[in-house]
Amino acid sequence: MFHSFNKPLVAVLLGASLALLRLPAVAADAAPVDQATIEANRKANAACYECHSAAAVKKPPRADLDLSKLKESHIEPAIFNPSDHGVMDCRQCHAKNHYTEYPHAEAGKTTTSPCTECHAAKSLRLEPQFNASVHAKNSGLKEKFSCNTCHNVHVNVIQKRLKDPEKIVAQDNHGCLECHNSETMFARFAPDDEKLAGGKKKRPDIDTIHGWLPNAKAHWNAVRCIECHTPEVAEGKMLSHEILNKEKAEKKCLACHSANSSLKTRLYRHLVKGEQQKYGFTNSVILSNSYVIGATRHPLLDNLIIGLVLATLLGVLAHGVLRALAAMKRNKDQAK
């Protein structure tokens, strides 16, 4: 199932910040769309916004609109336009033939083009990863999931374009927390579990299951859930779509908190190419956003401190040995 218009509120909240970016209109894995096409698409979309917008909900352009349904299916151009799909005509995904009149044909309300129609190659590559994911393996879950379940197609901007780690974290964690931090949403997708009353898995409390993680909230603001909940991939490769459960997720702090931090191949993988050891710091691209103990170090300062501590140790040791030798000599002299 492709849930096309199921996230209007999410779109408004998350998209509001992304809209401020005014990102260039470039499709994720395709050649840039020319300006004339973009303008033609935006013009065509304007016809949809006449009804499918917050303004239309407030002031309906027609008397016979079903406002309760419209409230759940409006999109804000200011949020949609800068998103990855914002260069497209709404009808490229929302069955073209069914939107020529009002009320729209019934099929139009339920049919959307599958993501694979455009993203065939990527989909083929990601499918085995998704099939190994907790979202596919848990009973009764796979059929409920589409790309849009986690990646809001009307809002999201890919990491390469978004660049700012803070915005990437906000966007991507929102995709996870929307269900994992909401009883209602989790219940909608909850996997079957016959052992439990009601036959459905209960939402695990996020604070409780992350109780082992020091400063959990600081982590959630600075990194994405998927930094730990996806397997390690080779440098330069896209993150895996195999979402790991809590048993399999990364629990070794040093994966990130060390000089060879895996954040370089994850959250910072697009920024790391510009690493210039700013002010002499290792992983300065990470430091430009977050001080990560163990990862963002200054080798020169570290060597200086180690040198001073060693000099102090050697100093007191030498002083002690000399004192002992001098005392022995004095005792010897006195004995004479």
């Binding site: 082992w212 993680l213 020091p214 400063n215 070794k252 702090c253 040093l254 908190h257 060390s258 000089a259 103990i293 163990g294 990862a295 170090r297 570290d302």
Partner: peptide, 21 residues
């Protein structure tokens, strides 16, 4: 915490963080 490195015999990171706090 500061010199965290898998090759060094140091206190496990999350334990060190808790004790340090």
């Amino acid at each position: 915490l500061h010199f965290a490195d898998p090759k060094l015999p140091l206190v496990e990171f999350s334990l060190a963080a808790r004790i340090h706090d």
